[in-house]
Amino acid sequence: MNDEVIVRLEGVWKVYRMGRRRKIEVEALRGVDLGVERGEFLAVMGPSGSGKSTLLHLMGCLDRPTRGRVLFEGEDVTRLKPSALARIRNRRVGFVFQSFNLSPTLSALGNVELPMIFAGVPRKERLARARELLSRVGLSERERHLPSELSGGEQQRVAIARALANSPDLLLADEPTGNLDTETGQGVLSLLSETNREGVTVAVVTHDPEVAAIARRRVRIRDGRIVGGDDV
């Protein structure tokens, strides 16, 4: 095992079964080998439907491969129980989605607290940490606001703060600027770079070349296979 690799996919297939009798098979990933090194900033690029999101979910232990292995920090997570996977997602991984996916019933502060609640962090410590993160993304003034009272850019910044709540090793972002205008997107991107500079490994799914340009490494995916990139 290479200590420098935070997550490694080995011959990973993901097959979705669809239709009434689950007979139609969709091969979202078809034998992917990919290692993400600690501290790197990786961009995953490819056309729509090529399997980018699926890949990201597998890297973040949100899903399990149909075939092949996923090693997270050296541990084969393919056969781990759901609760063990939940624990990895909670402590080691942070997700940022294209559509922000904030909890509509919770305030900005509450959303940032959420991963820490599930981790069992005591309230006082949790509040202090959530406030610190909100101030880091420039939203100290908005902590009481509900997601519906925030702009898209602000919501995505809350989502990033939430993803960083439990000090993850790996930040996974699925088209984080896809729903934002260029300028707001720039703000979110610089937040991601900053996070990466502070030592957090970042992987971003995007089909925006500008986003990819910021990354230190790019891989290209098409029809469920890695077809190119800086190192391929």
Binding site: L62, N90, G94, F118
Partner: peptide
């Protein structure tokens, strides 16, 4: 929202 809670590490 349940999906999100799971993504941020909520156990079942």
């Amino acid at each position: 929202e349940i999906g999100v809670m799971k993504a941020v590490g909520a156990r079942n």
